[in-house]
């Protein structure tokens, strides 16, 4: 019974954080601030949702695999955000260099 309440709580909070991330992606004014909202909230939302799946299945191979997906997403999501921000920053810098030359 306590487990079920915990699972429902995890699912609802993961839905809340996913919604906040999406709202931030739509509302924020420029690329970097959009990245702030989407990266953080999506990482936590995915972690909570997959934790709920692991708790629902108990001790089984599915739980191990979903924990594996959590670890993978939590390592790769900040890296992906960093590489998008870097490519945006460097291409903007090149463009402003070209403009100052002209």
């Amino acid at each position: 019974m306590i487990m079920q309440i915990l699972i429902v709580l995890l699912l609802v909070s993961s839905g809340f954080f996913f919604a906040v991330g999406t709202l931030g992606l739509i509302r924020m004014p420029d690329t970097y601030t959009r990245m702030h909202a989407s990266t953080k909230c999506d990482t936590l939302g995915a972690g909570l949702a997959l934790l709920a799946i692991a708790l629902y299945n108990g001790i089984s191979i599915i739980s191990v695999k979903s924990i594996l997906v959590i670890v993978f997403i939590w390592i790769t999501n900040p890296t992906a955000a960093h590489i998008i921000a870097k490519s945006k920053y460097n291409s903007e810098k090149q463009n402003s260099d070209l403009k100052s030359l002209e």
Partner: peptide, 26 residues
């Protein structure tokens, strides 16, 4: 360090070089 800064409140790592880290703050 860079990945942790990205996940902590209001900051996002943009670039890394020899001198330090370039961070975007919200």
């Amino acid at each position: 360090y860079a990945n942790s800064v990205t996940l902590t409140p209001g900051t996002l790592t943009v670039d890394v070089d020899e001198e330090g880290f370039l961070v975007h703050a919200l």
